[in-house]
Amino acid sequence: MRVFPVYAPKLIVKHARIFLTGVIWVKDLGRLEFEKGRFLLPRKSLPKVKQAILELNELIEAQN
């Protein structure tokens, strides 16, 4: 598990694309899981977490 002390979308996306499957922890967002290079949306999450995951997945799609 990698810990990101700040929310840096480009760096987080780079990590997810390299490792494809895993878990990261982002300060103020908490634990985020990714599989096959995409972030998974938890069943229950705060609106800011949901927005961050959608933003990260959009960045991943834009890079493909």
Rank of each mutant, 00 (worst) to 15 (best):
M1F: 02
M1S: 15
M1R: 14
M1K: 14
M1P: 15
M1N: 15
R2T: 15
R2W: 15
R2G: 09
V3M: 02
F4W: 01
F4A: 01
F4Y: 03
F4K: 01
P5G: 08
P5T: 06
P5S: 06
P5L: 15
V6Q: 05
V6K: 07
V6I: 11
V6M: 07
V6F: 14
V6A: 04
Y7G: 01
Y7W: 12
A8V: 11
A8Y: 08
A8R: 08
A8F: 12
P9K: 03
P9H: 01
K10S: 12
K10D: 11
L11M: 07
L11K: 06
I12R: 04
I12W: 00
V13H: 02
V13W: 02
V13E: 05
V13M: 07
V13C: 06
K14S: 11
H15W: 07
H15Y: 05
H15E: 03
A16M: 04
A16G: 02
R17G: 13
R17A: 12
I18R: 11
F19W: 15
F19Q: 12
F19M: 12
L20P: 04
L20V: 10
T21G: 09
G22M: 04
G22V: 04
G22R: 01
G22C: 05
G22F: 03
V23S: 08
V23F: 04
I24C: 08
I24G: 00
W25Q: 07
W25F: 08
W25D: 10
V26F: 01
V26G: 01
K27P: 14
K27H: 15
D28V: 05
D28A: 14
D28K: 15
D28E: 10
L29W: 04
L29P: 01
L29R: 02
G30A: 04
G30E: 02
G30M: 03
G30S: 01
G30D: 03
R31P: 02
R31Q: 11
R31W: 01
R31S: 03
L32M: 14
L32Q: 00
L32C: 02
E33L: 10
E33P: 07
F34V: 04
F34D: 00
F34S: 00
E35N: 12
E35A: 14
E35W: 10
E35D: 12
K36E: 12
K36Q: 11
K36M: 09
K36P: 03
K36Y: 08
G37L: 06
G37K: 04
G37H: 03
G37N: 04
G37M: 08
R38F: 12
R38D: 03
F39G: 04
F39E: 15
F39R: 04
F39W: 01
L40Q: 10
L40Y: 06
L40G: 04
L40M: 11
L40N: 08
L41D: 07
L41E: 08
P42M: 05
P42A: 09
R43V: 09
R43W: 05
R43Q: 09
K44D: 08
K44R: 13
K44H: 07
K44Q: 06
K44P: 05
S45M: 13
S45P: 08
L46E: 07
L46H: 08
L46N: 10
P47G: 09
P47C: 09
K48P: 05
K48W: 06
V49T: 06
V49Y: 05
V49C: 06
K50L: 06
K50E: 06
K50V: 08
Q51E: 07
Q51S: 09
A52R: 10
I53Q: 01
I53N: 00
I53D: 00
I53H: 00
I53V: 09
I53P: 00
I53Y: 04
I53S: 03
I53T: 06
I53G: 00
L54D: 07
E55N: 05
E55M: 05
L56N: 02
L56K: 11
L56Q: 00
L56T: 00
L56I: 04
L56E: 15
L56V: 03
L56F: 02
N57L: 03
N57I: 03
N57A: 02
N57P: 01
N57K: 02
E58T: 11
L59G: 04
L59Y: 07
I60D: 02
I60K: 02
I60A: 07
E61K: 06
E61W: 07
E61P: 03
E61Q: 10
E61T: 09
A62P: 04
A62S: 10
A62E: 13
A62W: 09
Q63L: 10
Q63M: 10
N64M: 10
N64W: 03
N64D: 13
N64P: 09
N64Q: 09
N64C: 14
